[in-house]
Simulated scan of single mutants.
Amino acid sequence: MTTRVMRSDEWANPPSPVRREVLDAAPDGAEHGPPVLFVPGYGHGAWAFAQHWLEHTAARGFPGYAMSLRGHGGSGADPEARLRDYVHDVTQVAAGLPKQAVLVGHGAGALVVAMAMARYPVRAGVLVAPVFGGLGTAFGLLRRNPGGTLPGLFGGRVSLSASQLLSRAVQGTVAQGYARRLQRVPSGAQRELIRRHQPEAPVGDPPVLVVGSPDDKVVAGSALEWVARRYGGSPLLFPGMGHDLMLDARWQEPIDAILDWLEKAR
């Protein structure tokens, strides 16, 4: 992986400014860890981390932040948003934090984080159930959920069901409530995931952890292994959990493992 310093297209056509929603949770006692910025995937907002992981991170002594990408949650709308706009949002929020941050991205948000790490010198990076795109991902979703996936191939909305996102351990009404909160993703950003992305190398060679589940119905095990190998490791797996690890019934297990890893990586 190589890092490209000059990006002339972004100088000529910079991302449009938008309002950015950022939720935060401060430790009750003394801080003993770097700030952790959570970045949700497509369709999700900061709420997905505020449900469990944000406060739990603060309780462990790490200042926690969760943002919504443009067009998601309480952030400003941008119907023409593309991946580069999301990367811009993440790097701007991270650069505004009081200390060098840890970036934690979920789903397509993990791809955004991987791309942001080539611009912002993170303390560490965590890629949770990463969606780096590719035809394998598209065809896998099409096979499991043809009605919800097919419109996305023609510029429409990709709809993921509660059963694709969460394990059966989550109560049905709760799971359906989470699924109903998912928002429409701009067609341009959605189409960009048809091809597999290979982000540039992170600035400064920070430690990177890949986390997922072998029972994820969105990200195949082979995709998890591929992403982990790119960063010189193996994925940390949580069997029996769904794609949205931060909302699943056993949500505490992966976030505690992530924070344990951060404590050792310092």
Rank of each mutant, 00 (worst) to 15 (best):
V5I: 13
V5P: 06
M6R: 14
R7W: 13
S8T: 13
A12Y: 08
A12G: 05
P15W: 11
P15K: 09
S16A: 15
S16H: 11
P17T: 03
P17N: 02
P17K: 06
V18R: 14
R19G: 09
R19H: 14
L23I: 10
A30N: 05
G33M: 01
L37V: 04
L37M: 07
V39A: 07
V39T: 06
G45E: 08
W47V: 09
A48T: 13
F49I: 02
F49S: 02
A50H: 12
Q51A: 10
Q51S: 04
W53D: 02
E55C: 08
H56Q: 11
T57P: 12
A58T: 02
A58D: 03
A59I: 02
A59P: 05
G61M: 08
F62H: 10
F62P: 07
Y65T: 06
L69E: 03
R70Q: 07
H72M: 13
G76N: 13
E80Y: 11
A81I: 10
L83M: 15
R84I: 12
D85V: 05
D85A: 11
D89Y: 12
Q92I: 01
Q92K: 10
V93M: 12
A95D: 14
G96C: 14
A101W: 04
H106S: 14
G109W: 08
A110Y: 07
A114W: 10
M117K: 01
R119F: 14
R119Y: 10
R119A: 14
R123Q: 09
V128C: 00
P130Q: 00
V131C: 15
F132N: 03
G133P: 02
G133R: 04
G134I: 05
F139G: 00
G140R: 13
G140F: 07
R143G: 05
R143H: 06
R144K: 03
N145L: 01
P146R: 00
G147Q: 11
T149R: 02
L150I: 03
G152K: 09
G152A: 15
L153K: 01
G155I: 12
V158E: 02
Q164D: 07
Q164V: 01
Q164I: 00
L165T: 05
L165W: 05
L166V: 04
Q171T: 04
G172E: 03
T173Q: 12
Q176A: 08
A179L: 00
A179S: 02
Q183E: 13
S187F: 01
G188K: 08
Q190N: 11
R191K: 13
Q198A: 15
E200L: 03
P206T: 05
L209G: 12
S213N: 14
S213Q: 09
D216Q: 07
D216G: 08
D216K: 07
K217I: 05
V218R: 10
V219W: 03
G221D: 11
A223E: 10
A223D: 09
A223Y: 00
L224Q: 02
L224F: 00
E225A: 15
V227W: 13
A228C: 10
R229F: 07
R229N: 08
R229C: 06
Y231K: 06
Y231A: 06
G233P: 00
S234R: 15
S234F: 03
L236H: 12
L237F: 02
P239F: 06
G240D: 08
G242T: 09
H243V: 04
H243T: 07
L245R: 04
L245Y: 06
M246I: 03
A249C: 09
R250A: 10
P254N: 15
I255W: 09
I255C: 15
A257R: 15
L259V: 08
D260N: 14
R266L: 05
